[in-house]
Protein backbone atom coordinates (compact mmCIF):
# COMPACT_ATOMS: atom_id res chain seq x y z
CA UNK A 1 0.00 0.00 0.00
CA UNK A 2 2.67 2.46 1.01
CA UNK A 3 6.39 2.49 1.69
CA UNK A 4 7.62 2.61 5.31
CA UNK A 5 8.77 6.23 5.00
CA UNK A 6 5.33 7.38 3.89
CA UNK A 7 3.67 5.43 6.71
CA UNK A 8 6.00 7.11 9.16
CA UNK A 9 5.34 10.64 8.03
CA UNK A 10 1.60 10.09 7.78
CA UNK A 11 1.66 8.64 11.30
CA UNK A 12 3.53 11.69 12.57
CA UNK A 13 1.19 14.04 10.76
CA UNK A 14 -1.93 12.38 12.09
CA UNK A 15 -0.55 12.38 15.62
CA UNK A 16 0.26 16.08 15.23
CA UNK A 17 -3.33 16.63 14.09
CA UNK A 18 -4.58 14.62 17.06
CA UNK A 19 -2.51 16.75 19.44
CA UNK A 20 -3.80 19.95 17.87
CA UNK A 21 -7.42 18.79 18.00
CA UNK A 22 -7.25 17.59 21.60
CA UNK A 23 -5.51 20.80 22.68
CA UNK A 24 -8.31 22.85 21.16
CA UNK A 25 -11.15 20.62 22.44
CA UNK A 26 -9.38 20.20 25.77
CA UNK A 27 -8.78 23.86 26.51
CA UNK A 28 -12.27 24.85 25.34
CA UNK A 29 -14.04 22.23 27.46
CA UNK A 30 -11.83 22.96 30.45
CA UNK A 31 -12.65 26.66 30.20
CA UNK A 32 -16.35 25.77 30.03
CA UNK A 33 -15.98 23.52 33.08
CA UNK A 34 -14.16 26.29 34.93
CA UNK A 35 -16.98 28.74 34.19
CA UNK A 36 -19.71 26.28 35.25
CA UNK A 37 -17.83 25.54 38.47
CA UNK A 38 -17.77 29.27 39.30
CA UNK A 39 -21.43 29.98 38.41
CA UNK A 40 -22.71 28.26 41.56
CA UNK A 41 -20.68 30.24 44.09
CA UNK A 42 -21.23 33.49 42.17
CA UNK A 43 -24.98 32.87 42.39
CA UNK A 44 -24.80 32.28 46.13
CA UNK A 45 -22.72 35.41 46.73
CA UNK A 46 -24.72 37.83 44.60
CA UNK A 47 -28.27 36.52 44.35
CA UNK A 48 -29.04 34.64 47.55
CA UNK A 49 -29.26 37.37 50.18
CA UNK A 50 -26.56 35.74 52.31
CA UNK A 51 -24.93 39.13 53.09
CA UNK A 52 -21.46 38.10 52.06
CA UNK A 53 -19.00 40.99 52.22
CA UNK A 54 -16.13 41.12 49.70
CA UNK A 55 -13.66 41.09 52.61
CA UNK A 56 -14.93 37.64 53.70
CA UNK A 57 -14.08 36.24 50.28
CA UNK A 58 -10.69 37.93 50.10
CA UNK A 59 -9.61 36.69 53.50
CA UNK A 60 -10.81 33.14 52.80
CA UNK A 61 -9.16 33.11 49.38
CA UNK A 62 -5.86 34.43 50.74
CA UNK A 63 -5.85 31.83 53.51
CA UNK A 64 -6.51 29.05 50.98
CA UNK A 65 -3.97 30.45 48.51
CA UNK A 66 -1.25 30.59 51.15
CA UNK A 67 -1.95 26.93 51.94
CA UNK A 68 -2.47 25.37 48.52
CA UNK A 69 -1.03 28.00 46.16
CA UNK A 70 2.21 26.10 45.65
CA UNK A 71 0.29 22.99 44.57
CA UNK A 72 -1.77 24.91 41.97
CA UNK A 73 1.43 25.26 39.94
CA UNK A 74 3.45 22.24 41.05
CA UNK A 75 0.78 19.59 40.32
CA UNK A 76 0.28 20.40 36.62
CA UNK A 77 4.07 20.60 36.18
CA UNK A 78 4.54 17.23 37.89
CA UNK A 79 1.87 15.36 35.94
CA UNK A 80 2.64 16.77 32.49
CA UNK A 81 5.51 14.36 31.64
CA UNK A 82 3.37 11.38 32.68
CA UNK A 83 0.06 12.40 31.13
CA UNK A 84 1.05 14.28 27.98
CA UNK A 85 -0.76 17.40 26.83
CA UNK A 86 -4.00 15.78 25.59
CA UNK A 87 -4.73 13.98 28.84
CA UNK A 88 -3.82 17.02 30.99
CA UNK A 89 -7.13 18.68 30.08
CA UNK A 90 -9.02 15.52 30.98
CA UNK A 91 -7.18 14.79 34.20
CA UNK A 92 -7.46 18.17 35.89
CA UNK A 93 -11.21 18.29 35.31
CA UNK A 94 -12.07 14.69 36.20
CA UNK A 95 -9.82 14.61 39.26
CA UNK A 96 -8.47 11.62 41.20
CA UNK A 97 -5.46 11.47 38.90
CA UNK A 98 -3.00 9.31 40.80
CA UNK A 99 -5.47 6.85 42.29
CA UNK A 100 -7.67 6.33 39.23
CA UNK A 101 -6.64 7.86 35.92
CA UNK A 102 -2.98 6.83 35.90
CA UNK A 103 -3.68 3.19 36.84
CA UNK A 104 -6.44 3.05 34.19
CA UNK A 105 -4.04 4.33 31.52
CA UNK A 106 -1.31 1.87 32.51
CA UNK A 107 -3.71 -1.09 32.55
CA UNK A 108 -4.97 -0.19 29.07
CA UNK A 109 -1.46 0.17 27.64
CA UNK A 110 -0.37 -3.17 29.01
CA UNK A 111 -3.55 -4.94 27.87
CA UNK A 112 -2.84 -4.03 24.23
CA UNK A 113 0.95 -4.27 24.69
CA UNK A 114 1.72 -0.62 23.90
CA UNK A 115 4.68 1.20 25.42
CA UNK A 116 3.97 4.36 27.44
CA UNK A 117 5.07 7.40 25.45
CA UNK A 118 4.68 5.64 22.08
CA UNK A 119 1.95 6.79 19.68
CA UNK A 120 -0.19 3.72 20.36
CA UNK A 121 0.49 4.15 24.06
CA UNK A 122 -0.70 7.77 23.99
CA UNK A 123 -3.91 6.90 22.17
CA UNK A 124 -4.52 3.96 24.50
CA UNK A 125 -4.06 6.25 27.52
CA UNK A 126 -6.52 8.81 26.19
CA UNK A 127 -9.11 6.10 25.42
CA UNK A 128 -8.57 4.57 28.88
CA UNK A 129 -9.20 7.94 30.53
CA UNK A 130 -12.35 8.28 28.37
CA UNK A 131 -13.48 4.90 29.70
CA UNK A 132 -12.62 5.86 33.27
CA UNK A 133 -14.47 9.18 32.89
CA UNK A 134 -17.59 7.42 31.59
CA UNK A 135 -17.66 5.02 34.54
CA UNK A 136 -16.88 7.77 37.03
CA UNK A 137 -19.53 10.22 35.80
CA UNK A 138 -22.18 7.50 35.68
CA UNK A 139 -21.45 6.15 39.15
CA UNK A 140 -21.32 9.66 40.66
CA UNK A 141 -24.67 10.64 39.12
CA UNK A 142 -26.34 7.38 40.09
CA UNK A 143 -24.86 6.59 43.50
CA UNK A 144 -24.20 10.08 44.88
CA UNK A 145 -26.64 12.27 42.92
CA UNK A 146 -29.68 10.02 43.12
CA UNK A 147 -29.07 7.30 45.71
CA UNK A 148 -26.93 9.37 48.11
CA UNK A 149 -29.37 12.28 48.22
CA UNK A 150 -32.24 9.87 48.88
CA UNK A 151 -30.22 8.00 51.52
CA UNK A 152 -29.38 11.16 53.45
CA UNK A 153 -33.03 12.24 53.36
CA UNK A 154 -34.03 8.89 54.92
CA UNK A 155 -31.47 8.97 57.74
CA UNK A 156 -32.77 10.52 61.01
CA UNK A 157 -31.78 14.17 61.51
CA UNK A 158 -29.79 13.54 64.69
CA UNK A 159 -27.57 11.01 62.90
CA UNK A 160 -26.90 13.58 60.17
CA UNK A 161 -26.04 16.15 62.84
CA UNK A 162 -23.53 13.77 64.42
CA UNK A 163 -22.03 12.98 60.99
CA UNK A 164 -21.71 16.69 60.24
CA UNK A 165 -20.13 17.40 63.62
CA UNK A 166 -17.54 14.62 63.43
CA UNK A 167 -16.79 14.23 59.73
CA UNK A 168 -13.67 16.41 59.91
CA UNK A 169 -11.73 14.53 62.62
CA UNK A 170 -12.90 11.23 61.06
CA UNK A 171 -11.53 12.31 57.69
CA UNK A 172 -8.37 14.20 58.64
CA UNK A 173 -6.74 11.50 60.78
CA UNK A 174 -6.87 9.10 57.84
CA UNK A 175 -5.83 11.75 55.30
CA UNK A 176 -2.76 12.66 57.35
CA UNK A 177 -1.64 9.01 57.67
CA UNK A 178 -2.33 8.46 53.96
CA UNK A 179 -0.18 11.44 52.93
CA UNK A 180 2.62 10.51 55.34
CA UNK A 181 2.76 7.00 53.83
CA UNK A 182 2.52 8.33 50.25
CA UNK A 183 5.26 10.95 50.71
CA UNK A 184 7.73 8.58 52.37
CA UNK A 185 9.88 11.42 53.68
CA UNK A 186 10.58 11.22 57.38
CA UNK A 187 12.18 14.61 57.97
CA UNK A 188 9.47 16.84 56.46
CA UNK A 189 6.84 14.66 58.22
CA UNK A 190 8.38 15.21 61.66
CA UNK A 191 8.96 18.91 60.95
CA UNK A 192 5.34 19.42 59.80
CA UNK A 193 3.84 17.62 62.79
CA UNK A 194 6.04 19.44 65.30
CA UNK A 195 5.20 22.80 63.74
CA UNK A 196 1.46 21.97 63.69
CA UNK A 197 1.58 20.96 67.38
CA UNK A 198 3.44 24.19 68.25
CA UNK A 199 0.86 26.23 66.32
CA UNK A 200 -2.18 24.64 67.94
CA UNK A 201 -0.96 24.19 71.50
CA UNK A 202 1.51 27.09 71.99
CA UNK A 203 0.94 29.88 69.46
CA UNK A 204 -2.86 29.83 69.15
CA UNK A 205 -3.65 29.74 72.89
CA UNK A 206 -1.37 32.79 73.29
CA UNK A 207 -2.49 34.60 70.13
CA UNK A 208 -5.99 33.50 69.03
CA UNK A 209 -6.05 36.14 66.29
CA UNK A 210 -3.54 34.09 64.27
CA UNK A 211 -6.20 31.35 63.76
CA UNK A 212 -7.23 32.83 60.41
CA UNK A 213 -3.86 32.01 58.86
CA UNK A 214 -2.77 29.16 61.13
CA UNK A 215 -2.72 26.49 58.38
CA UNK A 216 -0.96 28.78 55.93
CA UNK A 217 1.71 29.67 58.47
CA UNK A 218 2.36 26.00 59.22
CA UNK A 219 2.65 25.29 55.48
CA UNK A 220 5.11 28.11 54.86
CA UNK A 221 7.14 27.26 57.96
CA UNK A 222 7.19 23.56 56.97
CA UNK A 223 8.60 24.43 53.55
CA UNK A 224 11.27 26.74 54.99
CA UNK A 225 12.35 24.48 57.86
CA UNK A 226 12.33 21.35 55.65
CA UNK A 227 14.56 23.19 53.20
CA UNK A 228 16.98 24.44 55.87
CA UNK A 229 17.16 21.03 57.56
CA UNK A 230 17.15 19.00 54.35
CA UNK A 231 19.24 15.87 53.98
CA UNK A 232 22.02 17.48 51.97
CA UNK A 233 23.82 14.23 51.17
CA UNK A 234 20.79 12.58 49.59
CA UNK A 235 19.84 15.70 47.63
CA UNK A 236 23.34 16.24 46.25
CA UNK A 237 23.52 12.69 44.92
CA UNK A 238 20.10 13.18 43.37
CA UNK A 239 20.99 16.33 41.47
CA UNK A 240 24.23 14.83 40.24
CA UNK A 241 22.45 11.89 38.66
Amino acid sequence: MSTPTITLTSADASMARFEKQTTRYGSLTMTAGLIFSLFGPIYLVFFSDLQIAPSMIWVAFLAVAATFGVLWIVEPVTYFPILGSAAMYQAFMIGNISNKLLPAAIVAQSSIGAKPGSKRGDLAAVMAICGAATVHLTSLLLFVGVLGTWLVSQVPAEVIDVARLYILPSLMGAVLVQSIVAMKSLRPTIIAIVLALLMNFVVLPAMPAVAMFATALVVIASILVSWVLRDRKALVTNTED
Binding site: T67, F68, V70, V74, V77, P169, I180, I191, A192, N238
Partner: peptide
Protein backbone atom coordinates in the same frame (compact mmCIF):
# COMPACT_ATOMS: atom_id res chain seq x y z
CA UNK B 1 10.64 20.44 43.09
CA UNK B 2 10.47 17.32 45.23
CA UNK B 3 10.79 19.02 48.58
CA UNK B 4 8.40 21.98 48.31
CA UNK B 5 5.17 20.11 47.44
CA UNK B 6 5.98 17.36 49.95
CA UNK B 7 6.54 19.86 52.75
CA UNK B 8 3.49 21.91 51.72
CA UNK B 9 1.15 18.90 51.68
CA UNK B 10 2.44 17.49 54.95
CA UNK B 11 2.29 20.95 56.54
CA UNK B 12 -1.30 21.53 55.40
CA UNK B 13 -2.67 18.16 56.48
CA UNK B 14 -0.72 18.13 59.78
CA UNK B 15 -2.08 21.58 60.65
CA UNK B 16 -5.66 20.70 59.65
CA UNK B 17 -5.57 17.39 61.54
CA UNK B 18 -3.96 18.67 64.72
CA UNK B 19 -6.39 21.63 64.79
CA UNK B 20 -9.14 19.02 65.40
Amino acid sequence: MALIPTAALLGAFSALTIAE
